[in-house]
Amino acid sequence: MSDSIILGIESSCDDTSAAVLKGNKILSNIAANQEIHKEYGGVVPELASRAHQQNIIPVVDKAFSKANIQQKDISAIGFTRGPGLLGSLLVGTSFAKSLAMSLSVPLIEVNHLQAHILAHFIEDANPKAPNFPFLCLTVSGGHTMIVLVKDYFDMEIIGKTIDDAAGEAFDKIGKIFGLDYPAGPIIDKLSKNGNENSFKFNKPKLDHFNYSFSGIKTSVLYFIQKEVRKNPDFIKENIDDLCASVQKTIVEILMDKLEKAAIDLNIKEIAIAGGVSANSGLREAIQKNSERLGWNIYIPKFEYTTDNAAMIAMVAKLKFDRGEFADLSISATARYDIEEGFKKDIKTL
């Protein structure tokens, strides 16, 4: 294990984050959130990129300060190249390139989704890191997939959503309920006081390991419209039970496919990653499955589930050890295909 010191920069959506990693240990992990998007019920790309421009220098400065290091101490800079909002990515990419050039240190590009998965290898992410091969259920606002992880840079997507992501479904259903954005954490909180068996919503029937979440969104919408016509206060009077029932359904959809994949591939090393992996219902469900099916499970610390620069620094460190550096002419990409990214990494071995 090298004692390299890596600065990680994450700016794929609406969180500006910087982290410093030494070896596999995080020395600092700083993030600035953008509250303005609550007013619009979702992330506004133009506002997000402007906020990144305002936040990135103070966030990076604070990351250095908390880590108690100076700019001259870093070995390389890792940054999120994609996928994400192009305007937001451009801010992080431009800053990383400029700083790397000024410090004459290597620049390392990171796939955001890959970083969510490899966050498990940060020293304090879990009591121990997963063993290869393992399955990782990667769930966030923009992505939902089951990834077979054979090695750090040898991964295969074996199932993914054909429409909405799980986090997107939480947010859209929350909007139907009149909840603030992002609705996922609010639904999780309210569900703790509700009866998860109060209401039944549709679950999709798809082949193999793929997901669909547009059906539950439509099911909830039609159900609410029907009930509100009968009782205008229906949502207010039943919000806890509604949230609990929705959360149970989404978690069951996620777990059914993950269980099928684990059994079909005979893999008992199971991890979760991404923003929705912070959901208490999902964490409880995977814990129950571990006891029932004999899984060895890996649930990251909350601070490594949402978009954060620590996970970017972790992937950058692994690439640094392999001598995989990016050219300063590299550009951000909103649709960084995860499988192409993995294959590209494999070819450079």
Rank of each mutant, 00 (worst) to 15 (best):
L103S: 06
P83R: 11
I122H: 05
I162R: 15
V44E: 01
A129N: 14
M155H: 03
N126M: 11
H52E: 01
L90F: 04
K97D: 10
L85H: 08
A63E: 06
V147K: 00
Q70M: 12
C136K: 03
F121E: 04
A129I: 09
G92V: 10
L85R: 02
L137R: 10
F177K: 04
V44A: 01
R81A: 13
V59M: 05
N55D: 08
G167T: 06
S49P: 02
H120N: 15
T144I: 06
A67P: 01
I122T: 07
E123V: 00
L118I: 07
V43T: 13
G82P: 07
Y152G: 07
V139H: 12
L90C: 06
T93N: 13
Q70V: 08
L86R: 03
G159R: 08
I74C: 02
G167C: 03
V110K: 08
H116R: 10
A96V: 10
G141N: 08
Q114H: 15
N55W: 00
P133A: 09
K175D: 07
S102R: 08
I77V: 14
D61E: 15
E35Q: 12
V147W: 07
P133L: 09
V110I: 15
D151R: 04
L90N: 03
S94V: 00
G87L: 12
Q70I: 07
L99S: 00
Q114C: 11
R50H: 07
N55R: 01
A125Q: 12
L113M: 15
V91W: 01
A125W: 03
R50T: 03
I162T: 12
T93A: 14
A96T: 09
E35K: 12
E35N: 03
S88Q: 04
A119T: 05
V139A: 15
V110E: 10
I146V: 13
Y40T: 12
I158K: 04
I57E: 04
A67Q: 03
S94K: 08
E39V: 13
V60D: 01
V43L: 02
A115S: 14
A166C: 14
V105Y: 12
H52F: 00
F95T: 02
G178K: 09
I108E: 04
A125D: 03
D124I: 04
E156K: 15
D151W: 08
S98H: 05
A51H: 10
G141T: 04
L148M: 11
I108Q: 10
N111A: 09
S75W: 10
L148T: 10
E39M: 08
E156F: 02
G84Y: 08
S98L: 12
S75F: 10
I146C: 07
A165N: 08
F64L: 14
A166P: 00
C136Q: 03
T161N: 07
G142A: 07
L148G: 09
V105I: 15
T138P: 04
M155I: 05
K97R: 15
A100H: 02
D171G: 02
V147N: 07
Y152H: 14
H143E: 09
K72P: 00
T161P: 04
V44G: 00
V147Y: 09
V149C: 15
S98E: 05
P58K: 11
K38M: 13
I158N: 07
L148H: 14
A100L: 12
P106L: 11
I162L: 14
P83Q: 04
Q71A: 11
